[in-house]
Nucleic acid binder design. Structure first.
Lengths: 237, 237
DNA sequence: AGAATAGTGTCTTTCAGACATTATGTT
DNA sequence: AACATAATGTCTGAAAGACACTATTCT
């Protein structure tokens, strides 16, 4: 009953992963930053691009995303939140051959400049507004825009914002994430009541900030949470 | 400056599309139905599976999804709402070779039984509960579950529900979509006020139902709408 | 007339948003 | 003491949910 299959009868594709890596950097805390590389070879040589690369033939596509994150950005698996974004497969998006790209969204707390040592010498953080203006290679402008939109949308109804802060954080830290990602300002008091009032959203530690100006703030820990109901409302929407 | 690329140096993948096609059938109006085919050959010969097939080498992956929809289900592009779901690319999900599958979610109003004539003789509508119990081929059980979850979630904050009704419909028709997809009941009065109160969500026609029991209902037309704010609330969530 | 369904009105509760007030630290 | 920030309180308006009530058709 076993039938022999000849793989060559099926159209050959290359499968790549492309990464939209977003963080909020201490240097530019009012804006998202995205990790870009410069293409070292044709096509689009010299143009900025999203980090990424070819999936190996025996490698899970999610594993390929983590591997590229490590190779091109020096980021460990545990430092980032990674989720699949969308797959881009227009026939001529890469002029060399037929390439289908599975794009991923990676989020992390103020991530380090990747240039120090490692393979990731070509990668750098670019403020989002600047990245959107630059002429990215391939269809990477579309992928980047889709990734940012996904992040913005998911802040509303999930705990995704905690991916942008460290292991422990204050309510104000979390509020600044929302403000940065959405480009808005939020009322500190109302935000505090909202996020501390949703059961299971945040877990208070017994620690507080010290050495800062003003009243010390309680430190909270991330909680694995899927949905946030009712959502945090995005102003003017 | 032009460099020659040898495609054979990149790992060869096959790229398929798999379709989660959902509808609400008049025969089983209390439950979603999903389109399944029976596999005619190994692997998983005889097992039920999601419709789908190989992407052609010069074909956009979205075009491949529409083509399979036509070939395997006899459904025209204009009859369905189609959106990309997720890509599944575990190395051994298909034992024959390395296959990356781009899954799509297709929704339509009470779609016809596809067996009548055409290529789509193998396809049939299966009540969702029954499909979830059957041992689907490959990782299609996961894909189906993800597709259903996507549909359920998007009803809340988008106008996606109108994809399940015809060109014109009553508020009660739309309410039954929500009730069927969510498996709940909704208060008719509150639902009516809600959906007619959101500006731009529905467009009233000058026509009404006739020949039905009870007071005639105004017929509405679908409106291209992206977001629905505030959302329709899903009970108990 | 009675049943059935469409659509509106009313009341209560919840919660977002504006903004004042209290709490607790640093300079 | 002055200032800064955290956290809570108060008020208002909007909207959801429960449910009563009116409207309009068919049998």
């Amino acid at each position: 009953m076993a039938v022999r299959y000849d793989p060559s009868q099926f159209p050959p594709f290359a499968v790549t992963v492309d990464l939209v890596v977003l963080t909020i950097r201490d240097e530019t805390p009012d804006e998202l930053s995205v990790l870009l590389v410069d293409r070292g070879s044709a096509p689009h040589k010299g143009r900025p691009a999203l980090p990424g690369g070819f999936t190996h033939v025996d490698e899970d596509i999610e594993a390929a995303a983590y591997r590229e994150l490590e190779e091109e950005a020096g980021l460990q698996r545990r430092e980032v939140h990674l989720e699949q974004l969308r797959t881009y497969g227009a026939p001529r998006r890469d002029p060399r051959m037929r390439v289908v790209s599975v794009a991923w969204l990676a989020l992390g707390a103020s991530l380090p400049e990747p240039t120090a040592g490692s393979d990731a010498a070509g990668a750098r953080w670019v403020p989002l507004s600047q990245a959107l203006e630059s002429r990215l290679a391939f269809d990477h402008a579309t992928i980047l825009a889709d990734g940012v939109e996904r992040a913005r949308a998911k802040l509303e109804y999930t705990g995704l914002a905690t991916a942008f802060v460290g292991r422990t954080f204050t309510v104000a830290d979390l509020r600044r994430v929302y403000e940065t990602v959405w480009g808005t300002t939020l009322d500190p008091g109302n935000f505090h009541r909202k996020v501390t009032g949703v059961p299971g959203f945040l877990q208070a530690t017994d620690q507080q900030t010290a050495g800062t100006r003003g009243r010390p703030a309680v430190l909270y820990r991330r909680v694995r949470t899927t949905s946030l109901n009712p959502p945090v409302m995005r102003p003017g929407s």
